[in-house]
Amino acid sequence: MKYHVLEKEQLNCFIKSLAKKMKVVAPISKGHGNYVFGEVKSADEISLNYVPTILPPKKYFMPTKEKMLDFDLSGKEPKDTAALDLEEIAIFGVHTCDLAGIQCLNIVFNERPRDYNYLLRKEKLFIIGLECNKYCDEYASCTLVNSHLPNGGYDLFFTDLGDRFLINVNTQKGEDFVESIDLPKAEPKDMTALEKLREEKKKIFRNEIDVDPKKIPEMLDKVYNSKLWEKVGEKCLSCGNCTNVCPTCYCFDMEDFINLDLKTGYRLRTWDSCQFETFATVAGGENFRSQRSMRQRHRVYRKFKFPVDKFNRFFCTGCGRCSRTCMAGINLKEILKEVAEESKF
């Protein structure tokens, strides 16, 4: 493991050097306690202490609207060309929950048949993580799913040691950049400080709901027909906020658009949500998840049951976004507690 050190007052130089090479995005404040990942040119625009952004960094991996195809109907036979718009972007300040989210998406889009659009775009992204030394707020449940600590998935990873950042270098790409700006190597005292910080974190970060995470999938097996889903469904607006903001939700739709010449056009892949009324409706009109309760249950199973069976991991990163964003106050931690309670019977 390679570590380098960056003095805090040097952060601006770091960002500016990076911005010379590629577009840099980082958390910036939107007011009212809201943050977003957006382009920055200097360090003073960045909110280093931020509550998870409205949308997770998945928006750079799978854009909300992604062109997949260009077509031209003007000739005798239509022409079509696969489209792929790529941009080199450095994403700075990615919390460990969001790193876990990116890892989940990587697994999904790497599963055969693989999604080339996603995989090729991912190669253009330079990921710089940032450790949370304390909780962002009461919605987070990162310790439950063990995403409060770094588990890879980044090129560089920053840990705030007070007056300086300790930078863990995880890839050659990361190494090349750190070398290019001559960052000093970490000394033993830096490593001791890191160890001390991690010890401190153990005291702060504790299983948020007091439920053994390993047992959640089997608990869910028992409560599939429980009334608790109806209670959640009663509150649900079917607005799709919980899935849009989720770092591991990847459901999508495909839509064709035609230009005003009515001859040329393109196909977009757009984000979709299993919470929308029409999501599971077929052309004949039958809706296979017609109740809000079914859709909310589906969401929870897609985080804690289905991906465990399939990929052996949770697709919840504990970021808390779904609960934070729900206007009606549907709270994932509360749901899990109820699942644990109900599954006892």
Binding site: P113, L220, R289, M294, K305
Partner: peptide, 11 residues
């Protein structure tokens, strides 16, 4: 097996 629309309402 990605877009999610056809997933069956089943455990």
């Amino acid at each position: 097996g990605k877009c999610g629309h056809c997933q069956i309402d089943h455990p």
